[in-house]
Design a protein around this nucleic acid. Structure first.
Ligand SMILES: NC(=O)c1ccc[n+]([C@@H]2O[C@H](COP(=O)([O-])OP(=O)(O)OC[C@H]3O[C@@H](n4cnc5c(N)ncnc54)[C@H](O)[C@@H]3O)[C@@H](O)[C@H]2O)c1
Ligand SMILES: NC(=O)c1ccc[n+]([C@@H]2O[C@H](COP(=O)([O-])OP(=O)(O)OC[C@H]3O[C@@H](n4cnc5c(N)ncnc54)[C@H](O)[C@@H]3O)[C@@H](O)[C@H]2O)c1
Lengths: 207, 207
DNA sequence: GTAACAATGTTAATAAAATAACAATAATCA
DNA sequence: TGATTATTGTTATTTTATTAACATTGTTAC
């Protein structure tokens, strides 16, 4: 099954919302209710669920637990997938600290840095390894995904190396566009572009 | 002129790339060259530039300086626009520190928090004010844009207040979907969704 | 000077995403 | 029970975004 990226994004949001429902002891939720919580339309929800082949049968809304399970089967791996933060600076630490708080199939197992002050210490809940050991550690810890928070000038080279050593997914926080071969999935996370977009639309509204 | 959001995003990236060109003492750049640097197509570049009404006349590529100016005229405001970070925790500090390093039309002028340890101190290069003063300070400092990095449970209430006090744009780092009235621009920045998307496509590739 | 080329701007076509329309059916209630 | 309502799943339509096609026009080489 090949889902559109946009649908995958929404599935992630659906699941998060559904987990909140469980907390509130709600066991059923209507499509329009789920939609309202994330500010989209009910049709969009139903269409996405159609794409993943989920169907509720009852007309009393979706079974929250069941839908969580269905979505998890789609977007999660069987086994937990190992993640590392590359460059445990200001942003890297924030992200690492945040991740360690969650339990999920995504398991933050290491960080890497080249600052002697940092290596071989536990920072934001995760052990920092010397970047020079990354080839070995990717294999040893079976790391699949890298969260890239190194300075701009080293981002390109580090990416090439990581890909060579077997990394399959990269979440890029630097503002450098990266080149990855097919078979490696890259998601760009461009804060500057986001804020400039906000600024543009704020300006346009004002005028 | 009403530009598509996607085009605005790319304009921000074009400008950043063009500024790099200046550093490299390149004064002209072809559409296909600019495109290659951010991994899109030359047609996309030309189409975006058509939308903003820029035209090069020469066939020796775009004049880098001229294009930077043109884009800046479109996406920047005349005067600098004031930004604040709300919740100067781990993520807020990283973002603030990063912003203070740049000079641009976007000017980070304050942060707000309710932690007595933090208020009235300079953190990551920016003064932290008590959140209780936010109404007054938004007016006093003419703050237009808020970068929201508070804990989940306070995000909704804080957003409503800020909007009431005149904030016009919000970059939301929390994973709570926010409600804003029309006239206020909201950009969601959902890290968890991004990483789950990476995980999904990594998994799919593997299978 | 002019033919060949290279790069642009624009229109046309395609693809992707969102929205609308609607038929089907369980639940509700007179 | 049977009509009514509410909600779903799916197909059709519209909108938006991307890609392709192509005519235009400086530039270059001869
Ligand atoms: N902080 C933000 O909010 C923010 C926002 C947008 C983009 N970014 C980008 O994210 C990246 C990190 O930002 P930051 O604020 O955390 O910077 P930072 O300087 O605090 O952190 C960078 C870390 O990378 C490490 N490092 C440097 N070279 C390395 C190498 N070759 N191998 C391994 N580790 C190395 C450094 O020791 C440091 O710990 C930068 O590229 C920045 O442009 C940050
Ligand atoms: N750290 C990350 O990488 C990350 C990733 C994704 C999402 N987020 C989201 O970003 C937000 C912040 O994350 P964090 O890791 O920086 O958390 P944090 O706890 O380090 O920071 C939160 C800050 O907000 C302040 N605060 C709390 N209540 C407040 C209030 N009512 N008014 C003003 N300030 C208040 C706290 O004093 C603290 O300084 C959270 O909502 C989190 O879910 C963070």
């Amino acid at each position: 099954m090949k889902l559109p990226g946009k649908t995958v994004e929404r599935l992630s949001k659906y699941r998060r919302t559904l987990l909140e429902c469980l907390n509130e002891k709600r066991n059923f939720i209507y499509s329009h209710d789920l939609a309202a919580r994330i500010h989209i339309t009910a049709v969009q929800v139903r269409r996405d669920l159609m794409l993943i082949g989920y169907s509720s049968v009852l007309r009393k809304g979706y079974d929250v637990r069941e839908l969580i399970d269905t979505i998890s089967k789609i977007i999660d791996s069987e086994e937990s997938i190992h993640v590392a933060v590359i460059g445990i600076g200001n942003l890297g630490r924030a992200v690492a600290g945040y991740f360690k708080g969650k339990r999920s199939k995504l398991n933050l197992v290491a960080s890497f840095d080249n600052d002697p002050q940092k290596i071989n210490k536990v920072i934001s809940g995760v052990k920092c390894y010397p970047y020079n050991d990354i080839e070995r550690m990717i294999k040893e810890l079976d790391i699949r995904i890298a969260i890239l928070t190194v300075p701009l000038d080293s981002a390109k080279e580090i990416t090439e190396e990581m890909v060579r050593y077997g990394i399959k997914g990269i979440l890029n926080f630097t503002t450098i566009p990266l080149n990855v071969p097919s078979g490696v999935y890259l998601e760009e996370y461009d804060m500057i572009t986001s804020i400039e977009k906000v600024a543009y639309f704020v300006k346009e509204n004002k005028i």
